[in-house]
């Protein structure tokens, strides 16, 4: 069963004075199955961020529907949206979005505290995650005291601790050095193996090549997709790279693009 189903999503921004209409998404449809690890790629301005914001229920589409586990999130009432977001979705951001005023542990606890969980339960949930992410030692430190990679791992822990149906990651490697990037991608692959569904938006080929499926967005539409299948990361890397070249040089859809083996 599909965890996420996106149907005919359309988003038009109107400039403040009502003059110009900018179409960010023209018609996007795709679905994500339970346990999948999907990367969405596209150039700046292709509509990636708009898509992610709509999936995160931070923004409303002009038309179209988004189903999370069969529930239409577009129609959720404003009052319930925050609770829905923290119970069903986990977020990992490019610039971590950790609060300076909290220690890493408290940052990770934040969504649970908001849901009114007891300290005992929170701590019980944190321990295995912290062990897996190797942040046990730094839980009591503050975001400004640790490295970017450590911050991002804490952010991943914050996303995981609510046991979300779907993790949404927005350029998670964007602010990391290459070593930390490798670490984080390994981590994503690992938690995916454990059954966690992940949807990642990125324009890093390296990040995308760690996913099981890659969707390409161009001009507000899903332009193409690649399945990893039995390819290694390196092979997928090459395919993605070819696809991007093709998109950039204006190749027609389906002509000369790397074949989808799956």
């Amino acid at each position: 069963m599909a965890v996420l189903e996106v149907v005919n999503l359309k988003k038009i921004y109107t400039t403040r004075l009502g003059g110009n209409h900018v179409q960010a998404l023209s018609s996007v449809s795709f679905s994500v199955e339970q346990g999948e690890y999907v990367a969405i790629m596209g150039e700046s301005g292709s509509g990636k961020t708009t898509l992610l914001n709509i999936l995160a229920a931070l923004d409303k589409p002009t038309s179209g529907e988004v189903f999370l586990n069969g529930r239409n999130i577009v129609s959720i009432k404003e009052r319930e949206i925050a609770a829905f977001r923290r119970e069903h979705l986990g977020f990992v951001f490019q610039d971590f979005n950790l609060l300076d005023t909290f220690s890493l542990q408290d940052n990770i606890f934040l969504p649970l505290v908001l849901s009114g969980k007891s300290y005992k339960e929170m701590n019980g949930r944190l321990q295995p995650i912290a062990r897996k992410l190797e942040i046990e030692e730094i839980l009591n430190k503050y975001p400004y005291e640790v490295s970017g990679g450590q911050k991002q791992r804490a952010a991943v822990a914050r996303a995981l601790i609510t046991k979300p149906q779907l993790i949404l990651a927005d350029e998670p490697t964007g602010a990391l050095d290459s070593r930390a990037t490798d670490g984080l991608l390994r981590l994503f692959a690992q938690i995916n193996r454990d059954g966690q569904t992940i949807l990642m938006v990125t324009h890093s080929i390296k990040a995308a090549s760690s996913a099981k499926r890659v969707l390409f967005i161009k001009d507000g539409e899903v332009f193409h997709q690649l399945y990893k299948g039995d390819d290694t990361d390196e092979q997928l890397y090459q395919k993605i790279s070819d696809t991007l070249t093709m998109i950039a040089t204006g190749g027609e859809r389906g002509s000369g693009l790397p074949r989808d083996d799956a």
Binding site: L58, E78, A83, R85, E87, F91, N97, L110
Partner: peptide, 15 residues
């Protein structure tokens, strides 16, 4: 900035 982050992490605007 704090305002923004808290909303993303799952606090409603009202909270």
């Amino acid at each position: 900035s704090r305002f923004e982050i808290m909303q993303q992490v799952g606090m409603s605007l009202h909270e």
